[in-house]
């Protein structure tokens, strides 16, 4: 039960990534007592990608190299997230969810997995412009799970 609860908490928190301007995430993560390592790493990487915009001395080729360095790290973090997401359905048995709630839960799980897969794919292909929007989508999925399950079910 304890392990499943931890898995559930990781699920709730693992998708919580932030960009510099995402206020919706801020309001949610501030309420949490725990943060997964992956979400922290992803949040830092997204911020470092943004901060490259403020580099006035590096030329664009040098900045592109920095971006590629960060996108490689995002691929690693996405891999870790996918590994974590794989175990989320295991938590269902101990969450006392109604049948329809389980479907929503699993639907969100699949959606999150799908979005992280796309994030990984975009990072691998160095589609830097697509990454912030994808991260926002992951945040929305995470927040949806927060709203539906975190406040209505005992943990």
């Amino acid at each position: 039960m304890k392990n499943h609860l931890i898995c559930f908490c990781i699920f709730i928190l693992s998708g919580c990534v932030s960009t510099q301007t995402n206020n919706s995430l801020q309001s949610n993560t501030d309420q949490t007592a725990l943060h997964s390592i992956q979400s922290k790493q992803l949040r830092v990487l997204m911020r470092e990608l943004n901060d490259l915009m403020f580099e006035r001395m590096l030329n664009e080729i040098q900045i592109d190299r920095q971006r590629r360095y960060h996108t490689k790290e995002i691929v690693d973090v996405a891999d870790n997230l996918l590994h974590t997401i794989k175990y989320i359905p295991n938590a269902l048995a101990d969450l006392s969810l109604e049948k329809e709630e389980q479907k929503v839960f699993l639907g969100l799980n699949e959606k999150l997995k799908h979005q992280v897969l796309l994030l990984k794919q975009e990072a691998e292909n160095n589609h830097v412009d697509a990454i912030p929007d994808r991260a926002d989508q992951i945040i929305e999925t995470c927040n949806a799970c927060h709203h539906v399950f975190r406040h209505s079910k005992p943990q």
Binding site: E100, K103, V104, G107, L108, E140, A144, H147, V148, H151
Partner: peptide
């Protein structure tokens, strides 16, 4: 809450059956 987040805003007033069908369809698509 779930209708606000997952489904379109006007779905909040729809009945349980339609919501479940929507979600099933979404899961299948995903």
């Amino acid at each position: 809450i779930s209708s606000i987040i997952v489904a379109p805003a006007h779905a909040a007033e729809e009945d349980l059956h339609k919501t479940v069908e929507d979600l099933r369809s979404q899961v299948e698509m995903l």
